[in-house]
Design a binder for these strands. Structure first.
Lengths: 344, 344
DNA sequence: TATCCCCGAGAAATCGATTACACGTCGATC
DNA sequence: GATCGACGTGTAATCGATTTCTCGGGGATA
């Protein structure tokens, strides 16, 4: 592979001139043409490793996501990638697999590769490396998940409005015994969703007793299924369930089907996160949709602000209720906002 | 951030010694301990950019996938990532978004970053950069998709056996008018699946007329829906459809539902690629499952072989039919092989 | 006791770019 | 016509590691 020296020789100039031409620093017509011709003829492409060493900028952002096989994170990663790319950065995606140790491992790797900034959807709250990232001065932005004690802006969705709408929706449909499937207590995201849901229900005089709060240690579908099983075995089972993650919802649906129970007749189901196939499910699922792509975009901008030394605050974007048919509602309407047709 | 010079000073040795200790080249007890202590105290971590410049090895592999939001590719990427990671490499994932120009862009970026090797699930066959990769000497392995004219080993699944089983399965269930939804003619993967399916059906005396071959220009669910619509408008609609991609299957299912048609009573449906939620669909879908994780693993090994200068041949792993209920089959059996319980 | 070898460790070259500094040339100004 | 500035370009330092070459000292052998 040709290097800058080869180009310089071929063009009959010094390496400094080549560098200046290529970076648009000061050169003029004649020399410029000779250099560009040499570049073309040799198929020269600058070595980014060398450039990064000298400039201390790699043009690479890191993204750690909770789980590569979770469609919510995938869409998020896709959005981040798009935005980073359009701004001239490339992206290294690290998959934490929902394991804090693997996450720390990955953060270490990315730090060693001298990325310019890091986005993290943290798996759990026990990451020791996050503190080190902040200490090392590498710009850091949290995405989707807060981590207590880590001093970095966080870009995420606010479920208050959507959960308020959901409570109204359920109340209007006569559901009086709601339940929720969440991450274990102590998980900030789970705790918050539980709290907001409970508050929103209270406004309609509906209680959310502790027996109707099911925590899953894993955030997987097996956990969701186990919780649904426990709900159904209750003396007075709930008549509506909010699954706070798409995988847990899958498990819950399996348990319902296994017992021959139908959605929404026997049980209303609402899912957090709008995974593409939910709208094609039978019945189409009522969901709380996070503004995934906007989150990704905002996260990149926030991170770039930090990288460029501007300060950047946390961002909170509203999630919204998308009412389909899994609570008994006629199709294609948003509640309680004015109806809005949804293309299928 | 501390550098090797700081460590050397603190330990009272030269930078060369530090490097040797850290790379295990020739160290001895006493000096070694001093160096390690200094490393610990300063929190030193080697700068990989500098190391890469000197050694011409970045310890990074590139992976270009067709579409980040397609669960098949996600699972593949996850598998590749796992394997690469366990072998001490990190992975940069590039998302081609099924667009050859974006793919070329990405390949360029990765090449500039001096990755040690590249895995590509090519979007289309029109990539001009793939030739350049080969020419540049960067080790290249194709994954899942062949690209004619590119001289590199390819790791992918072989559908012959599965499609043979599928033909037998459909014949046994009395389906006589099968159809297929494929990528447009000229797409190697699509052409091959069509050819193999047709041959397999012929062995049972079943024809696959051209009217029952529907090509979708996009590989998305809208295309799948359009093709299914055309099939259903035929004077004699098919009684079984093979969708050769999970997204196209989604669209096909939408069209069936919109017409009030049921699976499998009114139409048998089989899908290429076993996306996790297919087994939770209603009815659970009969699929042709590719050995995704094995493909990812094999691809990494093949690429490493190339990187280390050993030669490496193409790899072909068998896909298999997983019969669930979408053709009318009782649940949980593989056909025609002996039945095998499948955990749900 | 003298010679040779081996081994550990330092000095310096190196990877390929960017960039501070210095220098020469040219036109403009007084 | 001499001086100054601006401008274009070359020389060389630099980024942080690895690695070659070299040297000094200690142990073994004759």
């Amino acid at each position: 592979m040709a290097n800058i020296k080869d180009v310089a020789e071929r063009a009959g100039v010094s390496v400094a001139t080549v560098s200046r031409v290529l970076n648009g620093h000061s050169p003029v017509a004649e020399t410029r043409e000779r250099v560009l011709a040499a570049v073309r003829e040799l198929g020269y492409r600058p070595n980014n490793v060398a450039r990064a060493l000298r400039t201390a900028r790699t043009g690479t952002l890191g993204l750690i996501i909770g789980d590569l096989t979770n469609p919510f994170f995938t869409e998020l990663a896709d959005a981040v990638e798009d935005e980073a790319r359009s701004l001239g950065y490339s992206l290294v995606i690290g998959n934490a697999g929902e394991r804090p140790d693997q996450q720390d491992d990955y953060i270490r790797t990315l730090l060693d590769r001298q990325i310019d900034g890091l986005l993290v959807s943290s798996a759990g709250t026990g990451s020791t490396m996050l503190g080190e990232v902040v200490a090392s001065g590498t710009p850091l932005v949290l995405l989707d998940r807060i981590v207590p004690g880590v001093d970095a802006p966080c870009v995420r969705a606010d479920g208050r409005e959507a959960l308020t709408d959901l409570a109204a929706h359920l109340a209007a449909l006569g559901r009086r015994r709601p339940a929720i499937i969440v991450a274990p207590a102590g998980t900030p995201t789970g705790d918050e969703r539980l709290r907001l849901f409970r508050t929103a229900l209270a406004a309609h005089g509906i209680a959310l007793p502790d027996t109707c709060v099911g925590a899953t240690p894993d955030l997987q579908h097996t956990g969701g299924r186990a919780v649904m099983r426990a709900f159904l075995d209750l003396p007075e089972p709930p008549d509506a369930v909010l699954a706070t993650d798409n995988l847990m919802a899958l498990g819950a649906m399996d348990e319902l089907r296994a017992r021959g129970l139908r959605i929404p007749e026997d049980m209303a189901l609402v899912v957090y996160d709008d995974v593409p196939w939910f709208r094609h499910a039978d019945p189409p699922l009522t969901v709380i949709a996070q503004p995934t792509r906007e989150l990704g975009r905002a996260a990149v901008h926030t991170l770039l602000a930090r990288i460029e030394g501007r300060d950047a605050a946390s961002v909170l974007l509203p999630a919204r209720l998308v009412a389909r048919n899994s609570c008994g509602e006629p199709t294609g309407r948003r509640v309680p906002a004015p109806s809005r047709a949804e293309p299928v």
